[in-house]
Design a protein around this nucleic acid. Structure first.
Lengths: 142, 142
DNA sequence: CCATTTACTCCACTACGATGGACTATCCAT
DNA sequence: ATGGATAGTCCATCGTAGTGGAGTAAATGG
């Protein structure tokens, strides 16, 4: 039987995510919330909650712990003082960078062995895979 | 700025996993346990627990719910009557198969456009990516 | 300026994941 | 045969994710 690359890659990525979270001392909910804040930049709790698919009340406690752990800061929004913006703590970004720097280096090392055409094939494959997965998520949610 | 394929693929896979779990009515722990049972075949709780990184006591409740939902059966191990083997319920496998059949078909469709050499490049890339991710998991756990 | 809406927090509650300890049944080595 | 180890469940307990409802503070619209 041929190797099931899809399943193996999928498992490897999920395990990697979990390992990162464990290394940062975060559980799944906190890790997911921190990821969204890092990706989308400063945002109020009210915008983050629907993005994660939970109510704002559930987020208060999660953000409490992220703040206590030093990953996130609550900053008042100057343009609307009801809101508190969630900001990734710049003092902690080196921690995060360190984790992914090794990964990036290891990936770059073997990627450099591919020529231009090969690299084009790979990105085409990744592009299609991502598209298919997103389609499937949409289908499954319906 | 170039697209970050690694991040996009990673996110797409994680979201796909979550969508599958939601579709099956399972939470993360149950989904993970069911995946391990499907992958490794019938196994006692005592073998599954370390694989998932939890204690056996935590698994009792998870398996209870998987059994109640019909995905898993508890069968006595004839060779050691202390043990109960966890078996994927064959009646439910069509449900699981249906979810992945669409994915497999969509993947196969665009994969058929690659020639032999291109496919070799892709599997080489996937192989290396899986290796690097596993190395990183090991490193992060240390 | 007052009523309404909005943003967030706090509270009580439910459910789950995980732990350690106690217990039962079974296996196995002496 | 019996004493110890092993497999699994049950129990009490803790921390956490999620809900809905109440409350506070601030923005907004007539």
């Amino acid at each position: 039987m041929a190797r099931d690359y899809g399943w193996e890659l999928s498992t490897a990525i999920v395990l990697f995510h979990e390992a990162v979270a464990r290394r940062l001392g975060l559980n799944a909910a906190e890790h997911k919330a921190l990821g969204a804040i890092l990706r989308s930049g400063p945002m109020p709790i009210g915008a983050l909650a629907p993005e994660l698919g939970v109510g704002v009340t559930a987020l208060t406690g999660i953000v409490d712990r992220l703040e206590r752990a030093g990953y996130v800061l609550r900053r008042p929004d100057p343009s609307d003082r009801r809101r508190t913006l969630l900001v990734a703590n710049p003092d902690k970004t080196p921690d995060l960078g360190g984790i992914f720097a090794d990964l990036g280096q290891a990936m770059a090392e073997f990627q450099s062995r591919y020529d231009e055409h090969e690299m084009a094939v790979i990105t085409d494959y990744l592009d299609n895979t991502i598209r298919v997965l997103r389609d499937q998520v949409t289908r499954l949610a319906s």
